[in-house]
Design a protein around this nucleic acid. Structure first.
Lengths: 214, 214
DNA sequence: TCAAAAGTGTTTTAAATACACCCATGA
DNA sequence: TCATGGGTGTATTTAAAACACTTTTGA
């Protein structure tokens, strides 16, 4: 990965790093893996990432890396920011396009993982390798911003869900409670949900109405 | 710029392209230049852009390109999006980090340009080379979004300005008129301005109060 | 009848919008 | 005194926030 200059043109390695979020046990968790032994941060925790291949766009590469390294397929991704600091990677010029990814617990999307990976709760995240702490900063800020103005919460939920489950997602992401009545009013008035006209029972409680995103 | 693969590692050329805006004669204009004769779109209009050098970050490269090619220094820039399409550039793998830049008419920031450049009004922009039309889409959308929620308008104005001049900037960027009383109320209540407690006369009209951004 | 979560309305406050006239200046 | 842009206030509408009790279910 030594610097490459041909005909006075400078070539860089293009990489992607992805902050992949998922809610587990009412906690916002991030997927991290051990940096491979060949890398300068061998064995340390880092975001899932890797080099972009000749036949891939950055977006493609994120999908492949999540699938290969963590067994996650069919995931929502969004580009965040590109980090082009000269000495980000001690091995040479590596420019990384950072992505946000969101998923939910759904067995069909998780197959075998090829890397030691772990879902770490945001609030007990260890120090990460490279400049990945900075990428995480961007990612969480971006996610918190977008959940207010868009329907990205859908990617953190299964297809069908109750309003309470939806509210939980919002609360977990922004990190504080919301008023139930105001929340339901705003969501329903916004028109982004469709009622399934069915309910779901859970234990001994009153059944809850099911919704899907339009 | 042919594809480079060394030790099974794929190297790409990193480039930047910048959508640089400026208001001239009450029109939002974009800086474009002729693509150099060595390029696949020789002679066509394109955004200002070029390769990132080994000792530069993407941000650095944008500043250098604007300075060298168009003589613009000390400019506000902001990263927009990275375009990594495989065949963006017929010569090989060129990944471009797109930037937004904003400036205003201020002689000290404009020196000699090295390239045939032109400020084109947004609404009569010619077809651009590469995927630069797409970059422009991103840029104008982003600018319109940000002017509502931030004080980026400051970069399109000189240090001191009147409220009417500020309102003109908003109107020109978003493309429609605003109510004068409501505009002034919102801006003054937001607290982003400081009154200079001076006025400026222009022609035969009542003098206008001068403000600066805090 | 109890526990546990589901569900439901009104009042208050703040922000955005709509709207029209007088003021200061130099010619 | 006129033309030109500078400057100002109130009423209405809309959106956000605060706030507490009743309903449904299975054990």
């Amino acid at each position: 990965m030594k610097p490459v200059v041909k005909n006075r043109i400078h070539f860089a390695v293009l990489a992607t790093d992805v902050a992949c979020f998922r809610i587990i046990d009412n906690q916002l968790c991030v997927l991290i893996g051990r940096a491979p032994s060949s890398s300068p941060f061998a064995g340390e925790w880092a975001l899932i990432g890797g080099m972009v291949r000749p036949e891939e766009t950055a977006e493609d590469s994120v999908s492949r890396l999540l699938s290969d390294k963590a067994g996650i397929k069919n995931i929502y991704t969004e580009q965040l920011h590109t980090f082009s600091g000269i000495n980000r990677d001690p091995r040479g010029r590596v420019v990384s396009v950072a992505y946000l990814a969101l998923t939910h617990i759904d067995p069909q999307d998780i197959s075998k993982a090829r890397l030691e990976t772990k879902w770490y709760p945001m609030n007990s995240l260890p120090k990460l390798a490279y400049d990945h702490d900075e990428i995480m900063e961007h990612a969480i800020k971006h996610l918190r911003f977008k959940i207010h103005n868009t329907n990205v919460a859908r990617y953190l939920l299964p297809h069908e869900f109750t309003l309470t489950e939806l509210q939980n997602v919002y609360e977990i992401v922004i990190g504080k409670g919301m008023d139930k009545r105001n929340f339901r009013k705003k969501i329903l008035v916004s028109g982004m949900l469709k009622s399934m006209k069915r309910t779901r029972k859970k234990g001994v409680m009153r059944p809850a109405a099911l919704y899907v995103f339009k």
